[in-house]
């Protein structure tokens, strides 16, 4: 029994880490724990968290997706262009999401049908999708999109004190948590990452599962882009650069194994909170952005090192 306890404690490692960081920051900077700052942090976190949630699924299957930043850019560009052309906001958003889903599905198909390693496949599509975004927007930001109230709500709205992006994040979290814990697809995701061969021989539709995780990641990345567009009322073809790194970092800090089959989405949520809180706190403390990078890297290392311990 005692060992079980230790295991559970270790699983909670990221949570404890988060609490420690929050305590330190709130001592150093009293404004940190103010209600509006908390929601501010959560809102900043939501973009990365949405992408990282998808990334968690991909990594659980033993894959990786480097193209999320480019999908974000093209997804938001599609929506922005539609809006600028005067299309119905809901339809524009839907088209942006579909674009994201299609790009994700393309990733999945290259990985499954083309049998290309996920790292290589998405490295290639990362460039391709970025290039397409630049072609599509002519390399210029799309601005002054719409004064549609409903579109602005997506990124700027509030429900009571809670910013809409935070609500989106929670909805995505709950849905994915449900999928992972309760559905056959979720079980398949863990099984494929744990032993692909055995999964195939058990009659699990491995290819379908892989296409699914990349598609979900594509949709979530595009949605993150749409939220950004709604907040800024513009779409930048260079948006989302190197977002894949923050997303992967959140997944890893949360305790999901990069080799697949082992991990959880709650950990990823905590992981993105840790990154977000650090960003926000270090900003409040006026730490130079250069040094912030060092801190972030160190945190990732600590997380992985702690995770190593339960291997023996």
């Amino acid at each position: 029994m005692s060992k079980q306890w230790v295991n559970n404690l270790q699983k909670l490692g990221p949570v404890i880490g988060l609490i420690i960081i929050v305590i330190i920051l709130s001592i150093l900077s009293p404004s940190f724990l103010a209600m509006d700052n908390i929601f501010n942090v959560l809102r900043q976190v939501s973009i990365n968290a949405l992408i990282a949630f998808g990334m968690t699924l991909v990594i659980l299957t033993g894959g990786i997706d480097l193209s999320v930043g480019s999908i974000l850019a093209l997804g938001s560009a599609v929506t922005a262009k539609m809006l600028a052309d005067g299309m119905d906001p809901i339809l524009s958003v839907l088209l942006g999401l579909i674009a994201g889903g299609v790009m994700g599905a393309v990733n999945g198909l290259i990985v499954t049908k083309g049998k290309v390693a996920p790292f290589i496949a998405t490295l290639a599509t990362m460039t391709i999708f970025r290039g397409l975004t630049l072609v599509y927007t002519d390399g210029k930001p799309l601005t002054g999109l719409s004064n549609s109230f409903s579109f602005q709500l997506i990124g700027k709205g509030y429900f009571w004190y809670i910013p809409f992006p935070v609500i989106w994040m929670f909805i995505a979290f709950v849905i994915l948590l449900f999928i992972l814990k309760k559905t056959t697809i979720g079980r398949g995701i863990y099984a494929v990452g744990g032993n692909e061969e055995a999964s195939i021989l058990s009659g699990v539709k491995v290819n379908r599962i892989k296409v699914f995780v990349y598609t979900v990641t594509g949709i979530l990345s595009a949605f993150a882009g749409i939220i950004l567009t709604s907040r800024l009322n513009s779409a930048d073809p260079n948006a989302g650069m190197s977002y894949e790194l923050d997303a992967i970092a959140a997944v890893v800090i949360g305790g999901t194994s990069l080799s697949g089959g082992r991990g959880w989405i709650f950990g990823t949520f905590i992981g993105s909170l840790i990154i977000g809180v650090l960003n926000n706190g270090l900003n409040l403390l006026d730490v130079s952005p250069f040094f912030q990078q060092v801190v972030k890297g160190v945190v990732i290392l600590i997380a992985v090192l702690l995770d190593r311990r339960d291997k023996k």
Partner: peptide
């Protein structure tokens, strides 16, 4: 080990 089971599960 390689074909029958997902050892982590």
């Amino acid at each position: 080990k390689s074909e029958g089971l997902v050892l982590e599960l």
